[in-house]
Amino acid sequence: MAALRARGGVALRRDLLKAGVGAWQLRTAARRDRVVVPYRGVLALADAPREFGAAYKHGGVLTCISAAPHYGLWQLNPANELHLVCGNGIPRDGVVLHRSASLPPMPGRPVAALADVLVHALRCRPTEESLVMVQCAVIRGDTTVDFLRKRLPGNRNGRARDVLDFVCPKADSLLEPLAAMHFKQAGIAFVQHVELPGVGEVDFVVERFLIVELDGKTHFEPRAIKRDRRRNNTSVAGGFTVLRYFYEDVVHHPEAMVAEVQAAIRAHRSGLRLNK
């Protein structure tokens, strides 16, 4: 039991034997329902991650979005398929195979090294999904954009390198890099993390007149609501227009968010022309 727990709850039978667990102990534990045998040659605790057993079954290690939860990385969507690095590259039903890993896997777990996980995600997943994973790792100090960029050489990795351009050095949530990405793709000019007198730091200032703020869970606390409304008032009194967006807007309805920002820009420019 201790040997299994040290390996994340799942291990190959041969690895347990090498670690000094006796064959009779394995048989006894299985008979007493203390461990299960999900696949031939694989033993697991009842509450162990199922994907670990599947990785051992296929002779591979988890990577890409299948490995994201085991590194505590941000995710927009759970993995519907198993993403693995396997030695021989033979196709397997229900498995997305990735190129060979460049670094040793996580010790004691069938999980690829973090750098390989991120590189595979950048090559495999839509921009939004890979961006939030990389953003999380970067702000935690687990890796750097330059480190990942060096592992993505050549023309075939051009799209993956482009995703790295959207990583925000100071972003503390997945909302900021996603919003910045959508604004850049729409050709909206902005500056991030701007300190305004009497207001404090705001998420975005667009064309010097429009403040765009992104509200996560903490903004719904009573004190935060009062603070944000006072900041809005101060901003408007200072000549700014303010738009606020939530998780659903940025993640699920980015087109509507972008269209609203563009409409505000057009209205502002129209007003300037009329004043002239």
Rank of each mutant, 00 (worst) to 15 (best):
Q75G: 02
E195F: 13
V206A: 00
L164V: 04
T127K: 13
H253F: 12
V10I: 02
M1E: 13
E255I: 04
P177N: 08
G8L: 09
T241M: 14
H252S: 09
W74R: 02
V111P: 06
H182Y: 15
V42H: 10
G20H: 01
E213Y: 01
A6Q: 14
D47K: 11
E51H: 00
I65N: 08
S130M: 12
C86V: 15
Q75F: 00
P169A: 08
L76E: 02
V191Y: 05
F147I: 10
R273A: 15
F240K: 07
A189Y: 10
A237Y: 07
R231V: 01
V205T: 09
V119E: 11
F246K: 12
E260Q: 14
P105S: 12
R151F: 04
A2I: 08
L214P: 05
S270G: 13
E213P: 06
A3H: 13
A101R: 10
N157P: 10
R50P: 01
T28Y: 14
T218K: 13
L4A: 12
C124N: 05
L122A: 10
V206S: 00
I139Q: 14
P49H: 09
V261S: 08
I139A: 02
I90T: 15
E260F: 02
F246D: 07
V21W: 03
R27F: 04
E195Y: 11
I90D: 07
R231F: 07
A264W: 01
V21P: 01
V117Y: 09
